[in-house]
Every structure is written in C-alpha cells, then in structure tokens.
Amino acid sequence: MSARLALGLAALAAAAAAPLVAGQHLLTAFIVALHAAYMALAWNVAAGYAGQFSLGHSLFYGIGAYASTMLYLKLGLTPWAGMFAGAVLAGLVGVALALGVYRYNVRGIFFALVTLGAAEVAKGLADNWDWIKGPVGILLTMKNAPGEFFFLRREPYYYVALAMVVAMILISLRLERSRLGQYFLAVREDEAAAEASGVDTHRAKTVAIGLSAALTAFAGSFYAQFYLYISPDTVLVFEPQLTMMLGTMVGGAGTALGPVLGSVLFSGLGEALRNLPFENTRQVVIGSKLVYAILLIVILIYLPGGLITLGRRSRRA
C-alpha cells in the first residue's frame, strides 16, 4: 500500500469518526465545508480540468435543488431518486448551453459572461414562475424519513456529504487518468494545439460542461434537503458560484484534492472567525471579514496555483 493511499484512508477514517466527537453545531460546520468542497470539485471538472471558466454554475445548482424538490412535492418521488433526475436535467441544460455557445465559438471571458447571463435569466424566470412559487420559495417539512432523505439529526447529512465528496474525488482521479481527462487538459492548455492533434475540442468542452453541470446539481438537491427551504434568492444567486470558485482557486484548480483543501480551509476559517472568544459586535464581525478577505488575497498572490502547490514546493525543496 502506497503512503498516499494510507494517508487517504487515515483521513477518511478520521472523517468518518468525526460525528462521534463533534456536537451538532460543529457537525453543521463540517457539513457546510463538505458541501462547499463538493461544489468546488464539481465546478473544477469544467473550469479546472477543461479550462472552461463558467460563472453560471448556480443555474445547475438551482436546477438540482428545484428538480428534486418539485418531483418530491408533485409526484412523491423520493429526493434520493429526484437528485439523479435533477442531475440529468442539469446535464442536458449544460449540454444545450454549451452547444449553443461553442457553435458561435465563444471563448474565455465571453464564455464566462454568457454563462453568467444564463444564470441571471434562470433567476428571472424562477422569480416569475408561479408553479415553483416564484420569489416566495418552497418549504419542505422537517421530519425524520430516511427513505425520503429527511433527517432530524445532523449525522446522516454528514455521512451523505462525506460520501458525495469521496465519490467526487474518485471521479476526479479517474478523470485525470482517462483519455477524456487528457482531452480536457489538452483543451485547457492550448485549444488550437489540441485541435491540431486531432482532439474534437467542441465535443470535449461540451462534455466537460454537461458533466460538471450534472455533478453540480447533486449539491443543489443536498442544499434543499438540508435547509428545507429553497427560493431563487437562495439557490439561483451568485453565492454558490462564489463558493465553488473560492474553494477551487484557493486550493488549486485542476487537481482532485486542491478544491477540497481550499473549501475546507475557507469554511473552517469563516467558522473560526464567527467563533471569536469576545463579544460579537458589528465591528468584530466586519474586522473578521477583513481578515478573511486579506488572507484570500495573500493566498492568491503568493500561491497562484493554490494551496496544493505548497506540498510540491516543499518536495522540490
């Protein structure tokens, strides 16, 4: 067994044992960190590996949240299955968006702006769509029904989030070693060279967006089941997109562990700054946000490849 595998298994064992020692509040903080890590990993598939810097992933996140919720409320379909339906739907929307965008050879910053626009349009539609209750949003009942993905305690949510992150890491590692993953990397590094080498770049980019969109939708469904309330203002805003980008860019884009590292660090830091041992006045809150922002800037300036490059640097040294 390699040292890396042993380290991974030890980390997994420690993570699996966390609920035994953590209280409900700490467990929520862990769930929030895992959820952020999962989102970052899902966005990383398109932005990190394939270099498709989407700013509209909140759209796919929102589709996941609304699809599993509406299927449950209208058809009684358990969200365990509904989240897969949401993923398929988000994947199809992602593919359709990519086909349209790449058809007109939209790249780089313009691609980012188009995806941002798509998410804005989706929010506008959701705000005015009575069937999904517009801006009022949808409430889910708080109950204990494991078969329907409802729990009163935090532990089951924690294990679901942990399983999602582990699965997403395995998918990322598998992708890195696959032919498709190599196509993604080739597109990211030099699209013209990749095309000259025989890579169907349009297809690779479309698959990257579709796959990333489908994976992102699971995070949206998880949000709905965990917070039991969704509205365009909570799932179709820029906030989830920001979480995905922060974790990925801070941890290291285009790697399987960087987004996890970045998300966990920033979620943990945010949580620690909310937990300062003195009176939580407005000045303290604003001060702690400043510290958060300064740290982010420092990391981005001195570690442009993300925290994951720290390990590589120390190995080189």
Binding site: A29, V32, T234, R274
Partner: peptide
C-alpha cells in the same frame, strides 16, 4: 439564511 441556521445552532 444558511448562516442564520448555523448561528442558531451556535
């Protein structure tokens, strides 16, 4: 809203 939930737990 998410932070409101976590702060309630705190």
């Amino acid at each position: 809203p998410e932070v409101a939930g976590s702060q309630t737990e705190r």
